[in-house]
């Protein structure tokens, strides 16, 4: 389909930020846009298959009141939103190879949502517009 690729670099590993990223990804996929996701550091750590659905907390700016509001709202888990996005569109999720090394991870440690491992050069090969950092 027409339209620029949505390129997201995910750094933060808290559930609220990952949910925001999943919503953007699913929306773009529904609109027929390609989505190119690069997982670094704590976002990558959150995609570990043994802890993807565990509680990853919320961003510090939420405070205790914000955390309570988010817990009350509920809604589906961000990993399910990413899965839906992949079922309706062209969504590639890449693990940053430096972060893999820093965290001591291999592909077997990650949820199958993650397609492969790559460096920044191959990430930028698929960028055709702005990059959003979350």
């Amino acid at each position: 389909m027409d339209g620029q690729t949505l390129s997201l670099v995910l750094f933060s590993g808290t559930d609220d930020k990952l949910n925001a990223a999943a919503v953007l990804t699913a929306g773009a996929a529904a609109m027929g846009r390609k989505v190119n996701v690069f997982l670094q550091y704590w976002a990558l750590d959150a995609f570990r298959s043994d802890r993807i659905t565990k509680d990853h907390g919320v961003a510090p700016e939420a405070g205790s009141e914000g955390a309570a509001i988010l817990a009350r709202h509920g809604g589906q888990h961000w990993s399910d939103t990413f899965r839906q996005a992949k079922s309706i569109g062209e969504v590639a999720i890449h693990a940053c190879s430096l972060s893999m090394e820093v965290l001591g991870l291999s592909m077997e440690d990650l949820d199958p949502l993650v397609d492969d491992q790559e460096g920044v050069a191959s990430f930028f090969m698929n960028v055709d517009g702005p990059v959003t950092f979350i």
């Binding site: 919503v23 699913a26 529904a30 839906q84």
Partner: peptide
């Protein structure tokens, strides 16, 4: 359902 699920589920169903 909240955003983006109405659109996502419609996109899935229309396929």
């Amino acid at each position: 359902l909240s955003c983006p699920l109405p659109i996502v589920k419609t996109a899935q169903a229309i396929k």
